[in-house]
Amino acid sequence: MSIDIPKDARAEAIASIQRYFDENMEERIGNIAAGGLLGFFLEEIAPVIYNQAVADVQERLQARVADLDIELHEEAFTYWRRRQNPGRSR
């Protein structure tokens, strides 16, 4: 699965790469080279970040699903117990 980004985000990323090179490197980078570098990052490095994000979401969802049992649990077969303790509210 390739990781794609929207066209406007791609343009901003390329501009950001170019700015980074302008401010931090001795040589400038052109639009095409910056686009190639972005493509490399998306293909080579982005899957690591994506997979970690998916794992983080899975962990949070599993924790929330586990909480559902606590929050929504309803005791079964309570009719006769309530009738044996008439002072207890229903």
Rank of each mutant, 00 (worst) to 15 (best):
A34C: 10
N85M: 07
A9L: 06
Q84K: 05
R28F: 10
E44H: 11
T78C: 09
Q58K: 14
G39F: 05
R28Q: 14
Q62G: 04
D69V: 01
F21H: 09
D4L: 12
I14M: 02
T78N: 02
A46R: 12
E59S: 12
E71N: 10
I49L: 15
M1W: 08
N85T: 03
E23R: 03
I17C: 04
L42P: 06
N51P: 00
A55V: 11
G35I: 01
I5M: 07
S89L: 04
Y79S: 11
Q62Y: 14
R88Y: 01
A15I: 03
I5Y: 06
N85V: 02
E27W: 04
W80P: 03
I29L: 05
I3H: 11
G36H: 12
E27I: 12
R90D: 02
I70K: 05
A9Y: 02
L61N: 11
Y50H: 15
Q84R: 07
E12A: 04
L38R: 12
Y20L: 07
R28L: 13
D56S: 08
S2L: 15
N24F: 02
W80Q: 14
Y79V: 12
R88L: 04
Q18A: 02
I70L: 01
E26V: 06
N85R: 09
D56L: 11
V54M: 15
L72N: 11
P86N: 10
E43G: 11
V65Y: 04
F77K: 14
I32K: 15
F40R: 14
G35T: 07
A76D: 12
D4T: 08
N24P: 08
Q62S: 06
L72K: 12
I45W: 05
E44W: 11
L61M: 09
N51M: 07
L68I: 00
Y79T: 13
D69L: 00
A66C: 04
Q84C: 02
I29A: 01
A46G: 07
E75W: 13
Y20T: 08
Y20W: 04
A53N: 06
D67I: 01
V54Y: 09
R19M: 08
A46K: 12
P6Q: 00
R83Y: 00
A9N: 06
I3Q: 09
S89I: 01
R19K: 00
A34P: 09
A33Y: 09
L37W: 06
I5T: 08
H73P: 07
S89Y: 07
S2V: 15
N51F: 01
I29V: 13
G39N: 15
L72S: 06
R81C: 06
R60G: 04
L68W: 02
V65C: 00
L68M: 02
Y20M: 10
R60T: 14
T78P: 07
V48G: 06
R82C: 00
A11P: 05
E23Y: 08
L61P: 03
R83A: 13
L42T: 08
